[in-house]
């Protein structure tokens, strides 16, 4: 018997349910396969991402965690030869369906990358970038969005006096929070984070984690992390990815409440991975 994050017991969730449940889940990935040219990178991916929860993807390097994340806001479209089979539902609508508005999708589901990648612009212009793209011109309105986003990203106090300075001058941890603020400025519903702390020191990492705990009250969060402890500390649900043999596609071995994954995993491979016995 599994329990969900509130401790209420729920029936063990099968990895593949034919019909995604709408309402409870913001994102439902169904039977997703991903190809890069002839290479099958992912197979049979099924994940449900619950609203206002943190869902973590863990697993050894190269097992396709980031690819799944990038297929949620169709950033894989940019990779030549990348092809997706299966479905990804965002609030019940298949984002790979015909005529789906990718720009709208990316606005609703923002992305934060492994290395902080602020634009070589001022702090202000970085945060205002998204709103400007979507046609906000009014100075007062931009000022407000910038301030609100920086406050929510827990960066305002550190930068409020120097918004016109280059974002490049910030520390790595500040840059990453700036990137989060930049995503928040377009008012997304979900935030995807691809190993957001990989390039940060432990204190900066902890600050990002605290921030995400705060943000999940308002946003739905999916995070890819190499750091198992981070997934354990942070997430409500965890999906464990693995590649069986060299050249095989990545698959999800186990997906469930983080409590279960880190205290009594069902799959032996999960247990061996999280206890450091392989990988």
């Amino acid at each position: 018997m599994q329990t969900d994050v509130e401790g209420k017991s729920v029936a063990a969730r099968p990895l593949a349910t034919p019909e995604p449940q709408h309402g409870r889940y913001m994102i439902s990935i169904r039977d997703l396969d991903l190809f890069y040219g002839d290479f099958k990178a992912l197979e049979d991916i099924n994940v449900d991402v619950e609203h206002n929860r943190i869902t973590a993807f863990i697993g050894p390097s190269g097992c396709g965690k980031s690819s799944v994340l990038r297929s949620i806001n169709r950033l894989n479209d940019l990779v030549k030869g990348a092809r997706v089979e299966g479905q990804v539902f965002l609030d019940g609508e298949d984002i790979y369906g015909h005529g789906y508005d990718v720009v709208e999708l990316r606005k609703r589901v923002g992305m934060v990358f492994q290395r902080p990648n602020p634009f070589p612009k001022s702090i202000y212009d970085n945060v205002a970038y998204g709103p400007r793209i979507f046609g906000v011109r009014d100075r007062a309105e931009l000022d407000q969005v910038v301030e609100e986003s920086l406050v929510r990203a827990a960066l305002w106090d550190e930068v409020k006096g120097k918004l016109k300075q280059s974002a490049i001058a910030l520390s790595g941890g500040q840059q990453q929070r700036l990137c989060i603020a930049r995503v928040l400025a377009v008012e997304p519903e979900g935030i995807l984070l691809d190993e957001p702390c990989a390039a940060l020191d432990p204190i900066a990492t902890q600050r990002i984690e605290d921030l995400l705990q705060e943000l999940k009250k308002t946003y739905t969060i999916v995070i890819v992390t190499h750091n198992m402890q981070q997934a354990a500390r942070l997430s409500d649900y965890t999906a464990f990815f693995m590649i069986e043999n060299q050249g095989d596609p990545g698959r999800i071995v186990e997906f469930g409440p983080t409590n279960t994954i880190f205290t009594t995993p069902e799959d032996e491979r999960t247990e061996r991975y999280i206890t450091g016995r392989f990988g």
Partner: peptide
């Protein structure tokens, strides 16, 4: 307690 030890190290 068990869960906190497992998850929060």
């Amino acid at each position: 307690g068990f869960e906190l030890i497992a998850r929060q190290a």
